[in-house]
């Protein structure tokens, strides 16, 4: 069935959309990056380490990572009201959790590293694009990291697993419908983030994690290439 399965945009089941990755997109920031899966575009900017304000939010023992995920009002078909929502509040925290295992800021007591993520254009998988951009921006800012992280949404459309969902697939209506599984992996292949909505059995869920690993290699390659290109420019 894998061979016959037709995706709306003609991709193979395990094929990512075209990745675009670029470092240094916000000159004011200490580090910044753009990451796109096809026409899902995220930019991220890092400010810090800097003194944490308000003071009561300071951690006297170690540095704090603070992420903010935001969608532009016109990034989707139907305008979304600007400002934080319950959804964006949750994704901000999820992003923070996804990145924290690789970010080594324990030495920056009382300080904060702010990561601002904005979705310029959305065609599903926005949190994953945002996390990928954030990892690059943190590296660009010179924040000590164990590795980058790679994030991708694995989907199940009816019974078929696919890599990197688009909106049309998120709304899949045939058979068992859509299942969306955004997964973020650290450099050593550990899961720092996983969510799931839909309907799936155990066996396929484990396969989904493997697909995320496979996709992670390509994402990592694109991230590194962009970071290296930036490094060479500065030399």
């Amino acid at each position: 069935m894998t061979k016959d399965f037709k995706r709306p945009d003609g991709r193979k089941v395990n094929e990512l959309r075209k990745i675009t990755a670029k470092v240094g997109v916000v000159p004011n920031a200490d580090g910044s990056a753009m990451f796109a899966f096809g026409d899902t575009i995220a930019i991220a900017a890092v400010y810090g380490p800097k003194k944490m304000h308000p003071q009561h939010a300071q951690d006297p023992e170690k540095g704090t990572l603070r992420c903010n995920y935001n969608m532009l009002s016109f990034s989707v078909t139907e305008r979304i009201r600007p400002g934080p929502s319950r959804r964006s509040t949750e994704i901000s925290k999820i992003t923070e959790w996804a990145l924290k295992p690789v970010v080594m800021i324990d030495d920056f007591a009382g300080q904060v590293v702010d990561v601002h993520i904005n979705i310029l254009q959305a065609n599903a998988s926005t949190r994953c694009a945002g996390i990928n951009a954030a990892a690059m921006a943190l590296a660009h800012a010179g924040i000590p990291m164990k590795s980058l992280v790679t994030s991708v949404s694995i989907g199940k459309l009816d019974k078929q697993l696919v890599t990197d969902l688009i909106k049309e697939e998120e709304d899949w209506e045939e058979g068992e419908g859509p299942t969306d599984i955004p997964i973020t992996l650290t450099g050593d292949g550990k899961i720092s983030h996983i969510q799931l909505d839909g309907k799936i059995g155990r066996k396929q869920l484990e396969e989904a994690v493997e697909l995320a690993k496979e996709a992670g290699k390509q994402i990592h390659e694109a991230q590194e290439k962009a970071l290296k290109a930036m490094g060479e420019k500065n030399e």
């Binding site: 959790w97 295992p101 899961i191 983030h193 996983i194 969510q195 799931l196 839909g198 309907k199 799936i200």
Partner: peptide
């Protein structure tokens, strides 16, 4: 499985 959420870092 219908939904899943990993929480904490």
């Amino acid at each position: 499985i219908h939904s899943m959420q990993k929480g904490n870092a």
